[in-house]
Each structure stands twice: as C-alpha cells, then as structure tokens.
Amino acid sequence: MTFDLSRIVAVSLLAIMILFMVLTPLMPFYDPYGQNLAGSLVPMGESSFDGKFYLLGTDTLGRDILSRLALAGQVSALIGLGAVAVSLVVGVFLGLVAGYFRGPVETLIMGLADLQLSIPRVLLLIAVSAIIGPSVTNLAILLGLTSWVAYGRVARGMALSLREREFVLSARTQGATAAWNIRKHLLPNVLPQMLIVGSYEFGQIVVMEASLSYLGLGVQPPLPSWGMMVSEGQSYLALAPSLAILPSIALFILVAGLQFLSQAFTSEGEVAGVSERSK
C-alpha cells in the first residue's frame, strides 16, 4: 500500500466532508427542518410546485435533503468526537495503569475489557439506550464508554513493553514515582499510536451511531441523522432511491476518510484499531 496515496485520498475525503458540513449552513436556502407540503419527494436538481429549487431533492415531508445531510453530519461528527474523547481518556488511563502496575490491577481492568468485548457493542448499546433513552449527550457518553477497550488494550500492550525499557527503569532508579513515569515516559510514547487508533475508532463510532439511528435507537427526531434518513428512505427505495443512497454516500465519505487516515499511518504488519488478545 502506498501510504502517500492513501494519505491524499484520506485528506481529500475529509476535506470534502468538512467543507460540506461547514459551508452548507451558510447558504441562503439552508433549512433542515422546514416542511414543504407542496414539495414532498422532489427529485434531485428539480423544483417543487411552488417553485423552490432543491439541489438534492426533498424527503417525504418536503424537507430539503441537502440541508438535512449537512446538519446530520454535524450531529454525527459531534457525537463521534465526544465519544472518541471519552473513550481515549478512559482507555489510555486504564490501559497505562494496567500495563505499568500489573498484578491484580491489571487482572481487574483487563477482565473488565474481556467482559465488555463478550457483549457485542451494538447489542449493549441497544439494550442500554432502549432503557435509558437516547439523546445526543447520552449517545456520546455511551459510545465512548463502550469503546475504551480498543485504546485500553493497545495502551496496555505498549505500557508492558515500555515499563521494561531502560529509560523507564533508569528513571525509577533515579527516584521517579509511578505517576512521573506514566506522565513523562509512557503517555508521550503511546499518544501517537492512540491517535491512530482514535481516527479508526472515530469511523467505527460514526457507523455505530448511524446503525443505532437506523434502528431508531440513536438520534431522535426532529434532529436528523444519516442512519435515520437511510431508514426513512428504505420504504421508498423503488420510488426514490436517492433518499437512502445520498446519506449512505455521505457516511461513506466520512468513514472512508477516517479509515484511510488511520491506515496511512499504520505500517504494513499492523492493522489499525485491532488489537491482540490480552494474555
């Protein structure tokens, strides 16, 4: 894999997505909520009966799809960033602590990780969000708390080898405390790797959120979400395929961009975001 090429692809895809999400709301026609009964299911690039032009058409309620796609993207990105932040902090902290101290602390933390892995993430999220009810904040925190394992395992693995590295040992012989070593040596050395995992996980979380929304358990109306838009479009698949296809394309651009980004910084023998079993 030529890393340069995947870097270029990644950056272009992400740039397109960011520009789309930022610029669309600045347009004069921007209106993600406004319904137009005179213009439901307007095809792409056509005008409604009352003469309004819709670049990407309208949905069943006559809402502008272009505007809704942009707003849904912002919501997804926001949830994704929040979840990545939560899981990165929790995962790196638990992973480093487990790897540096070892012993019962490690057994406990890694046991928790194994346990969490044995309940498929989507199912856990379905169960929890069905019970406590989904909201944007809830989703970000829930997605974050169920995603720490990826960071935790990689961080622990690295901490295990870092703690035996001679610069950590010699800091200990100089009188450094555990907190010093974790802060000064372990954290800076695992962080770049964590950001690579993060960019992969970001994509996964966007997919996860979209899947939940598709199942009706994610973002709730009137806020739009790509997953929900696909689900709404499914009933009109034969009639107006663009309803389901357009949000799918948006999802693809964002997720592929993030995935190529993490791949671009991963060497050949590794797979971003996938860690080995803790043993």
């Binding site: 598709y214 696909v230 395929p241 389901a244 799918s248 999802l251």
Partner: peptide
Amino acid sequence: ALGRQAIPIFSFGLVMIL
C-alpha cells in the same frame, strides 16, 4: 477491502436490494 469496510451494513444491504 478498505472501501467495503467504510460502508455500513445497512447502506450496503440497501444497495444490494436496490
């Protein structure tokens, strides 16, 4: 392979149905 992984299951499924 990378591209396929970036398409959520429901999107891919709907395209298949389509």
